[in-house]
Design a protein around this nucleic acid. Structure first.
Lengths: 116, 116
DNA sequence: AAATTCAATCGTATTTCTACGATTTATATT
DNA sequence: AATATAAATCGTAGAAATACGATTGAATTT
């Protein structure tokens, strides 16, 4: 048992949950926003921002790298990470679409309750 | 080691990642949408929707219960779950706000690149 | 060549997640 | 009282996530 069954679900829902998963740790929530707002950023700078060891921050970055959400370029002595805007837009759109649809649905419910 | 450090991060980011975490499995993505769209739903009906055992579906529902995102009422022989609209609106707003802010930020970046 | 430095990777411990079957609990029905 | 049924809970297995220190690799300085 315990073999994951996520692949058996609707592909759109898989994409939504994959993006959600990337945001399921507060460090990653901040990293993504920081990179979006500040552009090219060294790992050292990120390590300074969090109460985490360097190896742990690298591990979080690995999640993003595997999802092609970030890219990096070396420039001694640092490695600078940037967001892959195209991929971010795609993944973010999936999650946003889901959240907005949910929001719309429950708002309709509220209105329906109010008028009966 | 390995004791979780999430509590050391920004409370807003903790809330964002907590909601993201609830959506980090495709079954939960579908459950939340299904409850929002279809209202009061028995566990049996949910179990039928997924390639998962009854106990596994109950476990997923437990995530939502712990976050006060759902409520239930018994009516023999079924237990019917509904969304807690107020809580959903609050948690969803946090995640939406984050995603929309990200979207806005990267869109500005694209425009800046286009015009230089 | 030796030393330095940044960051990836490795090894490992602990915790949490995902999944299941089995059991328990609660509530009718018979 | 016995039976049936729905769903929570328990016990457990395996995988993945989170965290760290230590090591390695690449690149520049000295």
């Amino acid at each position: 048992m315990a073999f994951n069954k996520s692949h058996l679900f609707d592909p759109d829902d898989q994409a939504t949950s994959a993006m959600a998963h990337l945001l399921s740790h507060p460090a990653r929530v901040d990293i993504l926003r920081f990179l979006a707002q500040n552009g090219s950023t060294s790992v050292a700078k990120l390590v300074n921002r969090y109460p985490l060891a360097q190896s742990t921050v690298s591990q979080h970055l690995e999640h993003f790298r595997k999802a092609d959400l970030i890219q990096y370029q070396e420039s001694y002595p640092y490695i600078y990470y940037t967001i892959d805007i195209q991929t971010l837009k795609e993944l973010n759109a999936k999650l946003m679409e889901y959240c907005m649809s949910l929001e719309e649905t429950v708002s309709l419910m509220l209105n329906a309750n109010r008028s009966r």
